[in-house]
Amino acid sequence: MTIEQNFFNEYRLMYRPFTNQLNVQLEKYQLYSSQWAVLRLLIDKGPHSLVEIANFMFIEKPSVTRLVQKLGELGYVETVAGKDKREKLVQLTAHGETIVQEIQEHLKPFLEKALAGVPTQDIEIATQVLARICANIHQ
């Protein structure tokens, strides 16, 4: 097996179990990892249009529409008019902001356990490596 094959095999072996366990952690909030990704985008970078969310997540706009509808039903997000009245932006509600902070605290032990024994410097390097791979794939 080449170094490249080994790297992506290890990534694959980590990704699904991580996502499955993350979904277990999010059950309490009636969320899945993809919905959590939308909430994280909104808390980190502010309101976004459906198209911007779709582009950020590399998924189709109809999928984003369903994600946002569910988050709206839970009271976590709302849509508001953008600068152009035709544009609608998705933003967190006050309840959504509170829930995101609560979820972040709830997930902290899970994430710390997942990274147990990994030096901070290695985590920073891995984060940079994964960001570069993502950029390479989407060029």
Rank of each mutant, 00 (worst) to 15 (best):
51 V>E: 11
128 Q>Y: 14
10 E>I: 14
135 A>P: 04
103 I>A: 01
131 A>T: 09
133 I>H: 04
45 K>T: 10
96 G>H: 01
32 Y>A: 11
43 I>K: 13
102 E>T: 12
86 R>I: 00
114 A>T: 10
66 R>A: 12
79 T>I: 07
21 Q>G: 05
117 G>H: 15
64 V>F: 03
45 K>M: 06
104 Q>F: 04
117 G>V: 12
71 L>W: 10
18 F>I: 01
28 K>H: 08
37 A>Y: 00
33 S>N: 04
26 L>P: 04
113 K>H: 12
129 V>H: 08
123 I>Y: 09
47 P>T: 04
24 V>T: 11
62 P>Q: 15
128 Q>R: 10
1 M>V: 08
46 G>Y: 01
97 E>W: 13
115 L>W: 12
129 V>I: 13
21 Q>I: 03
133 I>E: 15
138 H>N: 05
86 R>N: 03
15 Y>A: 12
1 M>Q: 12
5 Q>P: 10
49 S>V: 02
51 V>M: 12
27 E>W: 03
44 D>L: 03
62 P>T: 13
57 M>N: 08
135 A>K: 13
17 P>C: 11
102 E>C: 05
92 L>H: 01
72 G>N: 15
49 S>K: 01
100 V>E: 07
43 I>D: 05
13 L>H: 15
91 Q>A: 10
73 E>P: 08
115 L>Y: 11
95 H>N: 02
58 F>W: 14
53 I>P: 00
119 P>T: 00
41 L>M: 09
22 L>R: 04
63 S>N: 06
99 I>V: 14
69 Q>W: 06
65 T>M: 01
106 H>C: 01
31 L>V: 05
117 G>E: 11
37 A>I: 02
90 V>D: 00
62 P>E: 11
74 L>Q: 06
122 D>W: 14
136 N>P: 01
85 K>Q: 07
112 E>G: 08
68 V>R: 00
42 L>F: 05
115 L>H: 15
105 E>T: 09
125 I>C: 11
17 P>I: 04
30 Q>E: 15
42 L>W: 01
81 A>F: 08
30 Q>N: 14
86 R>F: 00
12 R>Y: 02
89 L>V: 00
87 E>V: 11
23 N>P: 06
60 E>I: 08
91 Q>C: 08
104 Q>L: 12
2 T>C: 15
27 E>V: 05
